[in-house]
Amino acid sequence: MRCFHLLFVVVALLATAAADAKPVLRAVTDAPAGVASDSSDELYCDGWRLSVETGNAGPWSAIPSRCAGFVRAYMEGERYASDSAVAAADSLAFAAQALASGDGGARPAWVFDVDETLLSNSPYYAVNGWGSQEFNETSFDEWVDVAKAPALPSSLKLYKELQGLGIHIILLTGRSEFQRNATEVNLFFAGYHSWEKLILRQSPDIGKTAVQYKSERRAALEAEGFKILGNSGDQWSDLLGLPMATRSFKLPNPMYFIS
């Protein structure tokens, strides 16, 4: 009887707790009671950015209109710089460990994308809605010709540190061959020097997805004897496709999507 009575009390307490419990999960579009709508937008947009960075959002052409201010604040504030610095620190730690364990092979290499990986196009997007407008290839090409995009500070630091470790630097960009001169001028302007290769799209690459184009170029690099230890890019399409690097590192970019 004592055991039965104890069981009855436990069940009663659990039932009372369940009746008083509040839902743990809430839809991101639901505004909690007493929270202003702008706070709800911030919650939604922070969740949307996470979805973008993890690849859950899938293809998209422009950021949600309600998130334009959020993306601007993220890109101009400390969080973008901090997130980028964490990715760079993780990259360097992996590279040093891989070389120390002998995993680099005879020709260890690191592949970098260019836009939003080595160079920041924030000055362009600052006057073009931070991604809230659909991509305009003509105006972006004009910006590329200016060749004044600044370096991402953490990426420039990582770039030099990898060179100091003896790793071959390969630049693999979705830019086209006709932009080679402007790209080289901009890279030098931003402080990048002594890369092994700068690979741009050739005529046969026009129309290929970034995944197809970049994976084909990585295969060619491996055929030349490079061991691709790391690959840094702001798009999943910079990193996916076979062959892949030993480790791939995704940099933040909530402004646009490239398939």
Score class of each variant (00 low, 15 high):
residue 147 A to K: 00
residue 47 G to S: 09
residue 124 Y to E: 00
residue 35 V to H: 05
residue 115 D to C: 00
residue 13 L to F: 15
residue 254 P to R: 03
residue 236 W to M: 15
residue 112 F to N: 15
residue 252 P to H: 06
residue 23 P to R: 00
residue 242 L to F: 14
residue 221 L to S: 07
residue 101 S to I: 00
residue 37 S to R: 12
residue 246 T to W: 13
residue 70 F to N: 04
residue 254 P to D: 08
residue 63 I to R: 04
residue 99 L to V: 05
residue 32 P to L: 04
residue 79 R to D: 11
residue 224 E to Y: 07
residue 103 D to G: 02
residue 132 S to Y: 05
residue 137 E to T: 07
residue 21 A to T: 10
residue 142 E to M: 02
residue 210 A to F: 07
residue 61 S to W: 11
residue 168 H to L: 08
residue 94 F to N: 07
residue 96 A to V: 12
residue 71 V to G: 11
residue 114 V to M: 04
residue 153 P to L: 10
residue 248 S to F: 08
residue 252 P to T: 01
residue 240 L to H: 15
residue 219 A to L: 01
residue 158 L to C: 09
residue 16 T to V: 14
residue 230 G to Y: 09
residue 187 L to K: 00
residue 244 M to N: 07
residue 137 E to K: 04
residue 135 F to P: 05
residue 171 L to S: 06
residue 95 A to R: 01
residue 5 H to C: 15
residue 158 L to H: 05
residue 174 G to S: 06
residue 257 F to D: 14
residue 240 L to D: 14
residue 119 L to Q: 01
residue 152 L to K: 05
residue 258 I to R: 14
residue 77 G to P: 03
residue 42 E to A: 12
residue 143 W to S: 04
residue 76 E to D: 14
residue 53 E to G: 10
residue 133 Q to N: 12
residue 200 L to P: 06
residue 103 D to W: 02
residue 161 E to Q: 15
residue 45 C to S: 14
residue 114 V to T: 12
residue 135 F to T: 04
residue 151 A to H: 05
residue 255 M to T: 15
residue 212 Q to V: 13
residue 5 H to V: 11
residue 80 Y to F: 14
residue 212 Q to M: 06
residue 242 L to D: 15
residue 191 G to H: 09
residue 242 L to K: 10
residue 72 R to A: 11
residue 132 S to E: 06
residue 173 T to E: 01
